[in-house]
């Protein structure tokens, strides 16, 4: 091979290799992190199943309230490189973007869990509100969801026992 060919090959490997490497890394590491996160969410949700968080503002009328507290928690999440590529392909054909669904699902569940963990002595969280807002498009790119903030807020109520 001529030296020019070798240089060309090296450049081609860099230009095509880096995105492929990032996509594979995103797929493998991102997938592992996601399943670990879902596992932790499920375990914590099971541990807090006696402590509901509801969007209605009403309280148990038979019990008197000892203490109330405003609780709020936010989680900022973003997609991995591989799923971002998948989602951009989905833009061509339309339809469900499953990678974003699972991302937002775990962010919302995580935010609600953090609410409960903020006031562990309360019995119920009422008037639960969950908001999602895009806070930045990453690396200056306009397209894509970038980083998304999920903010959960509610009023933690502790009844008199």
């Amino acid at each position: 091979m001529e030296p020019e060919d070798v240089i060309g090959l090296v450049f081609a490997a860099l230009i095509y290799g880096i995105p492929v490497f990032l996509a594979v890394m995103g797929f493998v590491v991102g997938g592992m992190l996601e399943s670990a996160h879902f596992k932790s969410i499920k375990a914590r949700e099971a541990g807090l199943s006696h402590y509901p968080a509801v969007p209605t503002p009403s309280l148990d009328p038979g019990r008197s309230v000892a203490h109330t507290e405003l609780v709020a928690a936010s989680v900022v999440v973003s997609l991995d490189y591989f799923k971002r590529i998948l989602a951009s392909f989905r833009n061509i054909f339309g339809g469900r973007v499953r990678s974003y669904e699972s991302l937002l699902d775990r962010a919302k569940r995580e935010a609600i869990l953090r609410l409960k963990e903020q006031s562990p002595e309360a019995h119920i969280i009422v008037n639960l509100r969950v908001n999602t807002s895009q806070i930045s498009s990453t690396q200056g790119r306009k397209k894509g969801l970038g980083a998304v903030e999920v903010l959960a807020a509610g009023t933690a109520v502790q009844y008199r026992s």
């Binding site: 991102g30 992190l33 996160h37 989680v75 900022v76 999440v77 490189y81």
Partner: peptide, 20 residues
């Protein structure tokens, strides 16, 4: 840090703390 975290996805803890 968030740029690196963006490659593997998940929570961007630095941004969460900032917003909190």
């Amino acid at each position: 840090a968030a740029g690196f975290k963006n490659l593997v996805g998940g929570e961007l803890k630095g941004y969460t703390e900032l917003l909190e």
